[in-house]
Amino acid sequence: MNAIPVLVVDDDFRVADVHRAMVERVSGFEVVGTAHTATEARTMSERLRPELVLMDIYLPDGSGLDVVRDMRAQPDPPSVIVISAARDADSIRQAVQLGAVHFLIKPFGFHALAERLTSYQQMRSHLTGIGAEAHQVDVDRLFGSLRVVPGPGLPPKGHSAPTLERVLEAVRTSEGDVSGSEVAEAIGISRATAQRYLNYLEQQGLVRLQLKYGTTGRPEHRYLAV
């Protein structure tokens, strides 16, 4: 079976590369292009004809939701998973009205995206298996395949999403690995707070923990972007 062609859209080049790598870790998917602006997304969608688009909302030259609206006018429009830091009700409402199959709030781990890609794959398989006429059980199975058991994608109680994003960005933009103290100093928070957020990001698979052993004492915890 041919791999599902995917277009990744994100204004941040580094984030786009991370999302590309995540998608390509899931069997049955192939990233055919990455776009960083609304204009590039429109052009690449028309030229590459992806089946699935991972769409950011905040693009430098417009809204990703407007791009999705334009894509719907194409002869064979792609399915869309919205991936964004936006969490306002209006953005979510628009995404649903435009037919997005999922909405993932940044930052998230590999497993959160993999679950949604897999559910899309299952939905696609069920859709292919439906004959000329569908029974209710076929419809229920089709829509049920898109359900995902809620996971730990949102920050837990006591964690701020903006701070979580700043900590993750500090790790991603560092030259090599960083410690909790270095992250704390870089973004102006306490070491304990930085360490708490780093622990959460490591649990989500967004950063990788490395232990640095010295001559005495406990090993130092250092972190690398995934």
Rank of each mutant, 00 (worst) to 15 (best):
H19Q: 12
G176L: 07
V32K: 01
R42N: 04
D138G: 10
L224D: 10
M22Q: 12
V82R: 03
P50H: 03
F13M: 01
P5T: 08
V101F: 05
P78W: 09
S179D: 06
D76V: 15
R49M: 10
P75M: 15
D140G: 14
P75S: 15
T34I: 03
D138S: 11
Y213A: 09
M44S: 01
K157C: 07
A184W: 07
G151R: 08
T39N: 09
M123T: 03
A73M: 14
E185T: 13
A100H: 01
V178R: 07
H135K: 14
R141M: 14
T193M: 01
L54H: 05
R218F: 03
L104Y: 05
V32H: 02
H159P: 03
Q195H: 00
S27G: 13
P77E: 14
Q122A: 08
L164M: 07
L104R: 04
S27L: 01
R93A: 15
E24K: 06
Y200S: 00
M44F: 11
L59M: 02
T193V: 09
A95L: 00
G151H: 09
V53M: 08
V139G: 10
H135R: 15
R124S: 13
K157E: 08
V67D: 04
E185I: 01
A170F: 08
A73D: 13
S181P: 05
G180H: 07
V53R: 04
E133R: 14
L164G: 00
G217K: 02
L201W: 09
V149A: 14
R166P: 01
A184V: 00
L198C: 06
D56H: 02
P152D: 12
D12E: 14
Y213E: 06
H221V: 08
Y223L: 09
H19F: 08
A41T: 12
V178H: 02
E175W: 02
F103H: 14
D88Q: 12
S160D: 10
Q97I: 06
A3W: 07
V171F: 11
I4P: 01
V18A: 05
S181I: 03
D17H: 06
A184S: 09
I81M: 10
L206Q: 14
P60D: 02
A89L: 10
P150M: 09
G33L: 04
L113H: 00
H102Y: 05
R191N: 13
S63P: 09
M123S: 12
R47T: 05
H111R: 15
A194I: 10
